[in-house]
Design a protein around this nucleic acid. Structure first.
Lengths: 141, 141
DNA sequence: TTATTAAAAGATAAAAATATCTTTTATTCT
DNA sequence: AGAATAAAAGATATTTTTATCTTTTAATAA
């Protein structure tokens, strides 16, 4: 499914959505400890997300990572595509290099449906909305 | 999604379903060349499938891999679970070690739906049925 | 029963993903 | 301006996955 990196990234983004804003930034250390993921590795992922403008960051004292208003109004699709690449939503389920409706693998049409579900999963709610649900329902991330 | 190994395995099983039976067994070489996958690597996968009785094999002259009638009446789920493990259909989409309906991650309920689709994809037709479609519609594998 | 064939098993290697460590750069505060 | 802080960037290490190679075992056929 999604790579370990991608899962770390999604969880980190949700954590930032809940615990950070432009006035309260979070360091890698706090975030990685809260999520129990390797700190230096998460740092790389957050840097990558920041470069792609999916999260925000500043250096120096009181600096750190955070979600801007704009960031939190986006959905998780961008995060997934930034880490695992856009192909996760389109690549052939049998791994064929070319597989399309005109030239399909035997599972193609069914795979389309399943894949649509996957896309909706990360696309039909904003990060902010997911984060709110986590808070209201005390969900784990 | 599925690992490269798993994709190779599914394609090989379909290839065997089409081109082999108890009287016409196929060697690793022919199969790997037809599918353009690394031979020694495919050999390992086929051995594993054979150990799990998802495909059949015999040694010696005229030996090789093939699908028995029983093998081809099964579906692809067993193949996937044999290679990637049963967790592919149940593990948390965010990678949380525990994630259930009583203790869900924020994407849990939606992930259930998508995952159901994935399961149906490999479960609701027999290998034989898929193979027939490949032949009738000249699909690639 | 001997030679041959092909899978099974075991050992090794290469590549990719995951994880860590060090140095540099930007920012803030004193 | 200088010290401190934290991300950015770069280099390195470990683990897992993917791939290959060699030896052994089982089966067939001559």
């Amino acid at each position: 499914m999604f790579s370990k990196s991608c899962k770390y990234a999604m969880r980190a983004v949700l954590y930032l959505a809940i615990h950070s804003d432009a006035e309260h930034k979070l360091g890698v250390k706090e975030t990685s400890e809260a999520l129990e993921v390797p700190g230096p590795f998460l740092a790389k992922l957050l840097q990558q997300l920041s470069r792609h403008h999916l999260i925000s960051s500043t250096k120096g004292p009181n600096g750190g990572f955070f979600l801007s208003e704009a960031n939190s109004k986006a959905n998780l699709r961008g995060v997934v595509e930034s880490i695992d690449g856009p192909e996760v939503f389109s690549s052939c389920i049998l791994g064929l290099p070319v597989c399309s409706s005109t030239n399909p693998c035997p599972l193609h049409s069914r795979a389309l449906i399943y894949r649509q579900g996957l896309l909706e999963l990360v696309e039909d709610q904003t990060i902010k909305e997911v984060a709110h649900r986590v808070e209201r329902q005390e969900l784990k991330i």
